[in-house]
Write a protein that binds this DNA or RNA. Sequence first.
DNA 1: CATGAATGAGAATTCATTCAT
DNA 2: AATGAATGAATTCTCATTCAT
Lengths: 224, 224, 224, 224
Amino acid sequence: MSVGATPSAPRGDARIRGGRPARDRQLRRAGKRNVAKLLDAALVVFAEKGYHAARVDDVCDTAEVSHGTFYLYFASKDDLFATLVDDVVAEMRDLAGELPPIGGGVTGYRALRHWLEDFHDLYSRYFPIIQAWNEANAADPDLARLGGRVLREFVDRLVERVEENDPVPVEQPTVAALAMVAMVERSITFGIGRLVRVERDELLDTLAEILHVGLFGGRRRRSS
Amino acid sequence: MSVGATPSAPRGDARIRGGRPARDRQLRRAGKRNVAKLLDAALVVFAEKGYHAARVDDVCDTAEVSHGTFYLYFASKDDLFATLVDDVVAEMRDLAGELPPIGGGVTGYRALRHWLEDFHDLYSRYFPIIQAWNEANAADPDLARLGGRVLREFVDRLVERVEENDPVPVEQPTVAALAMVAMVERSITFGIGRLVRVERDELLDTLAEILHVGLFGGRRRRSS
Amino acid sequence: MSVGATPSAPRGDARIRGGRPARDRQLRRAGKRNVAKLLDAALVVFAEKGYHAARVDDVCDTAEVSHGTFYLYFASKDDLFATLVDDVVAEMRDLAGELPPIGGGVTGYRALRHWLEDFHDLYSRYFPIIQAWNEANAADPDLARLGGRVLREFVDRLVERVEENDPVPVEQPTVAALAMVAMVERSITFGIGRLVRVERDELLDTLAEILHVGLFGGRRRRSS
Amino acid sequence: MSVGATPSAPRGDARIRGGRPARDRQLRRAGKRNVAKLLDAALVVFAEKGYHAARVDDVCDTAEVSHGTFYLYFASKDDLFATLVDDVVAEMRDLAGELPPIGGGVTGYRALRHWLEDFHDLYSRYFPIIQAWNEANAADPDLARLGGRVLREFVDRLVERVEENDPVPVEQPTVAALAMVAMVERSITFGIGRLVRVERDELLDTLAEILHVGLFGGRRRRSS
DNA sequence: CATGAATGAGAATTCATTCAT
DNA sequence: AATGAATGAATTCTCATTCAT
């Protein structure tokens, strides 16, 4: 299977939360459907055109919802985007939290590899948002700060896991962990964004091995 | 010293090239000065506001050049941007070409470390353009393709250098090299963009070591 | 006591009349309550924001009535406004009709002074409507005509009362009466709208004296 | 001649001042012409539709100027309006300042009558603005305050002139003066707005006489 | 009767690009 | 070459009114 966007998982009812104008009132069934339709549509439109080129109207058209209805649930395009980013941030934090203890053996490798798959899936699902987020960082320092915080969560969690092992195989665990997170994040972005053509599994195998060997004392696997 | 943007080096006269409208004619001295002022101003403005939020007027104001003059040298904002990207691409290609042979010993390490410094400086200098390029990738497939090509150049060159050594310490050199380029690129971006606070030299030390050990058979350095 | 808006008197049941959609049907108790709530709310909202800035939603929120319910009783914002204006017009006509005969003596003065108090109270109660009416005159010739008719009623009535006395102390009673009505109306508006700070009673004393001396042959009061 | 709007006097070059965006730069001849065209057009459009119903496009169409050009000289419809109000305020202050000493004799009457003519002309010229100002008072406390200040200037000036005479024929000069200003202002507004049909000269005769007799010890004129 | 979600016409404003001077 | 005024397409957002439940 080649690397690429996977269809959005059905949006769990619990997650449905509109933008600012929808926070005050209780959404009924129809309201929730509209919010979900708009969020899904936004994902599609942002994927097609990028955040800046995306028009509110495009989102409405895709969601098959009128212009006015949009503003019933979201205060603006930014508000829509912020809502999506909040979703992504929440899932990223969950993901960071789920990084299991990683030993030097094959079990550790498997756990790591599995976690990377989850990372990849999360990025696949939210790729347009993450791209747009990168775009928006330039203009909105708040978003950039938020990104920094999430990044640090990944790094901290990774350092924590590295330090559970003995001996710790790297000198400067924090900087090394930062480099590794950068590697994972960017490689996966390259893959999903098709800047390079690379098989998902091959990429994940390689990333898992580098991480395992580099940070967790794993052995290099035999070449075929 | 902490990681951050370094001031643009004075633009060598040889490099002065305007956008589409300026290609046909021979630029005189005043013309070249205007082009240079506009390109420098663009760098500043893109740094401040990002590509999308930057207005042609902002660039003109910063360059202290009238609105109309802008269009004497550039066909559009995109054209201005494309010109800057061309510069960056050229320098990136040069940089890729300059990756020296890297042995497993300390000389190899030093060469690698030095090359990474150049990489970092290039990114520092053109950070706003590179950011904007990432933004624009979303909307402009041509730019994205261009980015892919440059990326592949780095990867290929790295693979070449890796394969000069014997034995090659990795199973899948291309994928590993991709991961390494991703790591370098993204770590440096994080640093310059101040998403994390990390010392430039510490970061480069760490990146150099990971690359050296991971791809070129270098030994792990002793911990202090 | 200083000049200012007095709270609306409880709306007598007889007066309850909705807008166009409510004319055809017999309103039940609940219906009447809704109409009354909406009219009172409109007064409050118009006072706060003025006619143009007032939103139908504001009126509904203030009346604690749903958006849809509004349109059960009023065809539009204009209809609501017209209903209020009709109320005001009716009360103004009543007031004009109640101008008593005014002799040149102290009894005449007292009657006049009392009538001006009623005038002031009416304006206090309906100030927002009257302001909005002035606004609307610009756009709606019908409303302006209606205003003209009411104005003329005051003028005519005043002329009538002036001419009951002998001798008539002014040359052109109609124009003078117009000037006097303008004076009363505008002074009171200035006071209620707090464009100037003036005591209600002082103002009414002065207006009564000017009218009495100027139109009804009253003697100037001694200075204290 | 009946009371009504008189055509705008040619706008003296000195007065030409655009809105916020035009304050910074020196306007050239064409720029001044545009500002003048837009201000004149605004007067026409506000007269036709009132302030709220007037569209920026209407003003542009009337001025035969493109939409974008408008925003070259005015930041918004409000800015355009504020500019006009500033003009009116300046002229009103001038007018207040020009109220001459008024004696009890025929010379005083004539001076007063002449000043009232100027008052009337000013109101004729700027009637739409003054109407709109009344409208806007409801929503914009700043404008209301400004109105209050101008009103007080008229009142104070009138009181000053009244107190130059001996004996002062009224008990409470300030309140009486307020009433008189209200009378003049509102009568003239009624006349120009055609709420009543009254000849300009007849109206001014009457107003002059009331003021002269009431405040300046003038004798009542003989009836024909 | 009551509700409040849905609609879409219409308004303001921005800004890249053109063009007359 | 240089200027900066003029343009108008494109976009966002508001809010009165309708309508399904």
